[in-house]
Amino acid sequence: MGTGWTRRELMRGSAVALFAGFMGPWGISRRARAAERFRAVHLSDFHWGYRGPWNRHPEASLRAVLERVRGLSPRPDLMLVTGDLIQATPESSQRRERFQQVKSLLDSLAIPWVAVPGEHDTFGDGGAMFEELIGPRYYHRTVGPIHIFGLDNVSRGPLLEPRQVSWFRREIQALSRDSIILVLTHAPLFSLFIPWNWYTYNGTAIYHIMRPYAAKQFLFGHIHQACDREYEGMNRSGLPTAWPLPEPGPLVRLEPWPQGATHPEMGLGFRVLDWQGGRFEEPLVYLEPPVVQEVTP
């Protein structure tokens, strides 16, 4: 997805795949896997094109985050974007322009990237332009030792179409039980807070399919804050680059905090995923840490 795959990276990826092919089913023995390293960056919720008090310069915030990503050492092998790349707009020409700008910015890092749609990305056309400019709404990619599944749980409502669930089941069942699997969605697959639409109506179908697989993780966005939740495996949210949202709790309308003049980047950032020694390390990188700490639902 994106045109971030340079020839060198493509060759490196092919070499890894060839090497993996010679090492046995789905690549690599357990011991070899423990010695492998893989670094990804989890980005989310850019809302490119937003104008208002929640972030007076969302473009500047995204650029600041991407600069931090560019400076990471070792360099990430992949960027994962969990939706809401743009702010929803009914104007299709404006939508196209926003997608193209975000794509060009992500491509400029020369790091391969994949994305899933958020409800802002699919507003107005059900995700048609996302598919045209960014990539398919749901897909399976293999990068190094990791199987990455992107799913769309927003474009047809807060749910996964049965067709998509069937496709996912077929793809997963073709993998060996010791595969390392990352599942990307925009909204959480579990019911984090239904009154704010922080859930997927039939998300349990995915957890059920994934049960036999131990090395798995579910990454999502949408909630604009850090959240680690053990539910049928680890579920982790990415940090937003646009604006932070409050913790769920009191039954009030969901409203972001107005951006403070003195702390414009509070709560914004990204997550690093380091696969090392057979497990993930996933530190958060804030442009500025939030006042309210991580959600503990």
Binding site: A88, F123, P158, I194, P195, N197, L251, R253
Partner: peptide, 23 residues
């Protein structure tokens, strides 16, 4: 209703929604 509709249509269905639509 609680699971599928409440967030957008409000707990009493009177339009006092907890979340607004993307527009």
């Amino acid at each position: 209703y609680h699971r599928a509709c409440l967030s957008c249509h409000g707990p009493r269905g009177n339009g006092e929604a907890f979340v607004l639509m993307p527009n």
